[in-house]
Design a protein around this nucleic acid. Structure first.
Lengths: 200, 200
DNA sequence: GTCTATACGAAGATAGAC
DNA sequence: GTCTATCTTCGTATAGAC
């Protein structure tokens, strides 16, 4: 089963490359479903240096992969927030996941969700996933508040955006259909529009 | 790590009991993180009859557990739908997950999400998860449509409800905080209220 | 930093007795 | 239906050479 490769740029640093491959693999197979052998094969990294680069073993690798995925999305969000309207930011956030689902035949989801669902026994990794979700929500919250939305409301809507898109990705994978994500995207647009109207 | 036991009634039929235990275990540990040994220990079922009850092995057990969890929630939803207002149904759906998260120290989530995220290589199980999500969405859709909501809109909002609650459960587990689910619940109430007002 | 070899346990699955 | 024993594969991790 060849993993889908979308979104992360390859590097030549073996450690970095292993982290990148892990992020790619866990979003398809989960944390427990991804082995060192998989990571070595996919990354092309040398077998013998796993514990040189990751002295604490798999938990450390998973944590790094989680932070890597988290920051990748945060950067994308930040960039959009600085150049676009809130409705466009939300739409593009959903659309980027839509692209991953369709291009990958619904095999791949979000690496942070993988960690939260099946890697939560790895405390540091789970915390990294939690930090990531909070960061994404914070970024959206700030962008809404800057348009005059009450901070409390902004945070609620931001949480709805992240939660519903992540949930829709899960539904889409299970149903092998993009319909859930498209429906959620449409409803989110109405919610954000209404939120902005109320504060205008 | 003793699994949290909430919501499913025990039986004396070993096969049924194994299915129930599997549903409980995968929502905490994921599909790959749950072994036959775990299921035997938790259910008290006899070691020697695993392949008597489940000739196709683990994939069959996971599929049955998925359908079991799916039907449990569908029954709860159906009962609420027949006796309550849509807003109350949605609130109680979210509240029931809230109870599981808090009572279980954020260890347990939704078994269908576990299958979609880390058991999607088991085709029959993944389809069972997809069927389950669709069923939940259908139940909510019908209940909204019965109150005069346009069927298409009803389906979109129903999908938003299921997706955002499932996503919020994931965020809550990662952050070890109920806040994401509470924020989503509040926003969903506004969405459902607005939807009903528009069709009144 | 990377190699090979290997220890060690866990997991899914099968065989044959009762 | 259930038991015990066992097979095989795989996964993490370590040791020690280069």
């Amino acid at each position: 089963m060849t993993p889908v490769i979308i979104g992360f740029m390859p590097t030549k640093d073996p450690r970095k490359q292993m982290i990148r491959s892990t992020a790619l693999l866990i979003r398809e197979r989960g944390v427990e479903g991804t082995s060192f052998a998989d990571v070595i094969e996919h990354s092309g990294a040398p077998r013998g240096s796993i514990y040189h680069h990751f002295p604490e073993g798999k938990p450390e690798l998973i944590e790094e992969a989680t932070r890597f995925g988290s920051e990748y999305i945060a950067r994308m969000l930040s960039k959009d927030i600085s150049t676009r309207e809130p409705r466009s930011v939300v739409r593009r956030f959903a659309q980027s996941w839509r692209g991953l689902l369709k291009d990958g035949g619904f095999a791949a989801g979000c690496p942070l969700v993988a960690v939260a669902v099946d890697g939560s026994h790895m405390k540091a990794a789970r915390e990294a996933a939690g930090d990531g979700f909070e960061r994404w929500v914070d970024l959206l919250t700030d962008s809404f508040a800057e348009r005059g939305v009450d901070r409390r409301r902004a945070r609620s809507v931001a949480t709805l955006v992240i939660s519903s898109v992540e949930g829709a990705i899960v539904l889409a994978r299970a149903e092998q259909s993009i319909a859930p994500l498209d429906r959620v995207t449409k409803e989110l647009d109405l919610v954000v529009e209404s939120m902005l109207d109320q504060s205008a």
